[in-house]
Amino acid sequence: MDLTATTQHLASAAADLVRLVPGKLIDPVLSGVLLTADAHGVVLGANDRERTARVSRGALVHTEGRVLVPAKPLAETLRALTQPQVRLVVEGSRLAIRADGARFALPLLDVDLHPGAPESAVGGSTVSGSQFAAALATVATTASRDEALPIFTGVRLRSEGDRLVLRATDRYRMAIASVPWSADTEIDLMVPAALLAEVGKQVAHIDRVTLQATENHLALAWSDTVVTTAVLDGSFLSETKLALSDADTHIEADADTLTAATRRVALYSDPRGVVQLEAGDTELRLRATDHQAGEAEEPVKATITGGRTSPSFQSRYLLDALRPFAGTRVRLAIQPGMRATVLTAVDPGEVDLRYILMPMLPPKV
């Protein structure tokens, strides 16, 4: 194999691939990147037997070929190069990376042991890349990171008419977002949140993303990238198991103002980071107290209707809940007692988002 390519394009492809499929450190073959060069350019592929990725880039191919090399060293080397062009050429048992007099060489792994990379997805349902990314920025980060509870580490993707609904929870909070989509079939799958979080970052400026589902796998395709992943069992994940219709207090406030006040007051919270929201007539008063840190309170102008429920929340979860509503007004529907509070946008856009937050016991005075 022998090819010349634009360094920046090849480096971005390798970096995207490594983030989509980090690889199995215990198996060098599954931690490798499969490079396939032909008349159409070069394809970088990865497969760890649970997820796969394939990224294509244009290249001037002098000699067609197929090799397997360690993925991360290739990505890091390409990222570090400042020369505009780079040449990849097989030299004996190594792949040489040449750029204006510099030479780096990676060992060739056994390409015949690699399971291969996915072909491009054909057909499937489509969603706006920017809207999908906006939904995933909130929903995917709400899933649990505790691998001991894998059923909470995914995002449930479910088609509901002309909307694709995304749901995730870590048992203390839940985020639900829906986006318009063009569906050719119904889907209902639980997809690892870590992968979708990275997909969201890569498709933020992409026009369309294609989703193609089977019983045990989901394929996502955009531009020159195709990703597949095994799915989890997520049929249990639904907000219908939560009582969300008994709110007795409704609060509307500027999300940025409320976020800033929460950060300041949380500096004086107890070790759990608990902040109390006390609803008044025309303002929402945030309070926090700790025997060592002291105490703080700050009012935020708000439109308040209904009762005077005063829930307490862990500040970091409240800040996470407010983050997707930045730059807008947010509505809090507060239920009495230790029941969930629902945050929504006062004027929702194409991405319809609901964030369900469980309260904490108030701090002991």
Score class of each variant (00 low, 15 high):
residue 299 P to I: 04
residue 336 P to S: 06
residue 74 L to P: 00
residue 153 T to P: 00
residue 147 E to Y: 06
residue 216 N to I: 01
residue 143 A to S: 03
residue 72 K to E: 14
residue 58 G to T: 14
residue 272 R to H: 14
residue 6 T to F: 04
residue 58 G to V: 09
residue 2 D to V: 05
residue 323 R to H: 13
residue 318 L to C: 08
residue 286 L to I: 03
residue 40 H to V: 09
residue 31 S to L: 00
residue 342 V to N: 00
residue 344 T to W: 01
residue 137 A to F: 00
residue 321 A to H: 02
residue 336 P to L: 07
residue 105 A to E: 15
residue 223 S to Q: 10
residue 334 I to D: 00
residue 166 L to N: 02
residue 335 Q to T: 06
residue 163 R to Q: 13
residue 111 V to H: 10
residue 298 E to N: 06
residue 333 A to I: 07
residue 310 S to R: 13
residue 187 I to R: 02
residue 160 E to M: 12
residue 68 L to W: 00
residue 194 A to I: 06
residue 148 A to I: 14
residue 51 R to W: 03
residue 47 N to F: 08
residue 168 A to E: 05
residue 229 T to L: 11
residue 335 Q to K: 02
residue 171 R to W: 02
residue 174 M to H: 10
residue 20 L to F: 05
residue 112 D to Y: 07
residue 8 Q to I: 08
residue 112 D to A: 14
residue 279 A to P: 09
residue 70 P to A: 06
residue 259 T to P: 00
residue 16 D to W: 10
residue 313 F to P: 07
residue 296 A to G: 04
residue 146 D to F: 06
residue 139 V to N: 09
residue 198 E to S: 03
residue 244 L to G: 08
residue 119 E to K: 10
residue 227 V to L: 07
residue 229 T to A: 13
residue 336 P to I: 04
residue 264 R to T: 06
residue 7 T to L: 10
residue 118 P to R: 04
residue 187 I to S: 13
residue 333 A to C: 11
residue 8 Q to F: 07
residue 158 R to I: 13
residue 287 R to G: 10
residue 10 L to I: 02
residue 50 E to T: 10
residue 44 L to G: 08
residue 91 E to V: 09
residue 99 A to K: 07
residue 326 A to R: 14
residue 111 V to M: 01
residue 24 K to C: 02
residue 181 W to N: 02
residue 350 E to V: 08
residue 223 S to T: 07
residue 52 T to G: 11
residue 307 G to P: 04
residue 5 A to W: 14
residue 249 T to E: 10
residue 131 Q to E: 15
residue 106 L to I: 03
residue 346 V to H: 04
residue 57 R to N: 01
residue 63 T to N: 12
residue 142 T to C: 14
residue 141 T to L: 14
residue 292 Q to C: 01
residue 33 V to G: 03
residue 314 Q to V: 03
residue 34 L to P: 00
residue 49 R to I: 12
residue 264 R to L: 14
residue 312 S to A: 15
residue 177 A to T: 12
residue 73 P to Y: 05
residue 322 L to F: 01
residue 172 Y to D: 09
residue 132 F to T: 00
residue 13 A to Q: 10
residue 297 E to I: 01
residue 159 S to A: 04
residue 286 L to Q: 04
residue 300 V to H: 03
residue 153 T to Y: 11
residue 320 D to Q: 08
residue 51 R to Y: 05
residue 170 D to L: 03
residue 352 D to N: 15
residue 52 T to K: 09
residue 48 D to L: 02
residue 146 D to L: 12
residue 276 Q to E: 12
residue 189 L to I: 11
residue 125 S to Y: 09
residue 11 A to L: 01
residue 42 V to P: 11
residue 245 S to V: 12
residue 267 L to E: 11
residue 255 A to E: 01
residue 171 R to A: 13
residue 303 T to L: 15
residue 349 G to P: 06
residue 346 V to P: 06
residue 340 A to F: 01
residue 154 G to W: 06
residue 73 P to N: 13
residue 28 P to M: 07
residue 83 Q to W: 04
residue 53 A to R: 01
residue 56 S to Y: 01
residue 94 R to Y: 11
residue 168 A to R: 11
residue 97 I to S: 13
residue 239 E to L: 09
residue 110 D to L: 02
residue 303 T to R: 14
residue 162 D to L: 06
residue 1 M to P: 03
residue 166 L to I: 08
residue 309 T to E: 15
residue 336 P to A: 07
residue 37 A to E: 08
residue 28 P to K: 10
residue 265 V to T: 07
